[in-house]
């Protein structure tokens, strides 16, 4: 007896529903990455240390590339981003602003005086958040059997992991200056 082969959860209705959920996540990802990139853009001019400014400028360039990578991931997942980019960017800006305001308040409460150093604290959180969102997209690509999306997301997560080390390092390196000596980066 020959059995008819069955495809498990690969019917169009199941796949369409999963693609829609993935698209919603990509909208979240786009907003988080946009917020991170915008916060970087505002921080760079505040930084006085030339080496740190160079580092953050490089991170800003990379952040633009990573923002564009969301479309590549969407194509790899065979989905369209759930929201137009303008709306996504606006959402990201709002999120970034909210995060920035929270950071200012928390940074001031913690005793840090410099605006750039307080932004560095927020950048560590914002990069971690957006990096995790890319890592989630990687998991979606793995779960749905889509290597193209995985390849792009993996590359971005790798770069942002290195960026996270740099952000944390600079933030901590200048911490005593900011808190004890009331100086900025």
């Amino acid at each position: 007896m020959t059995r008819t082969p069955l495809l498990v959860e690969l019917d169009e209705a199941t796949l369409a529903a999963q693609r829609q959920r993935a698209a919603t996540w990509l909208a979240t990802l786009a907003s988080l990455q946009t917020g991170y990139r915008q916060l970087l853009g505002r921080t760079v001019p505040l930084v006085g240390d030339p080496q740190v400014r160079t580092w953050l400028t490089e991170l800003h360039d990379a952040a633009r590339r990573h923002e564009a990578a969301v479309d590549e991931i969407a194509a790899g997942l065979d989905v369209r981003p759930a929201a137009p980019h303008r709306l996504t960017a606006l959402t990201g800006a709002v999120l970034g602003l909210g995060r920035e305001l929270a950071g200012q308040v928390q940074g001031l409460l913690a005793g840090g005086s410099g605006a750039a150093w307080r932004d560095l604290r927020q950048l560590t959180l914002s990069n971690l958040d957006s990096m995790s969102a890319f890592a989630v997209a990687e998991q979606l690509g793995l779960a749905l059997g889509r290597p193209r999306a995985v390849d792009v997301a993996f590359r971005v997560v790798s770069e942002k992991s290195a960026h996270q080390l740099l952000l944390r390092e600079v933030f901590l390196e200048f911490a005593a200056d900011a808190v004890l000596h009331r100086r900025d980066v």
Partner: peptide
């Protein structure tokens, strides 16, 4: 019960999983 769909030999050649596109 899980959703399944019967697959013809042709369908096995065009699976919706690019990581394993055909059987």
């Amino acid at each position: 019960t899980l959703p399944t769909v019967a697959a013809s030999p042709e369908a096995l050649q065009q699976l919706p999983t690019p990581a394993r596109p055909r059987l």
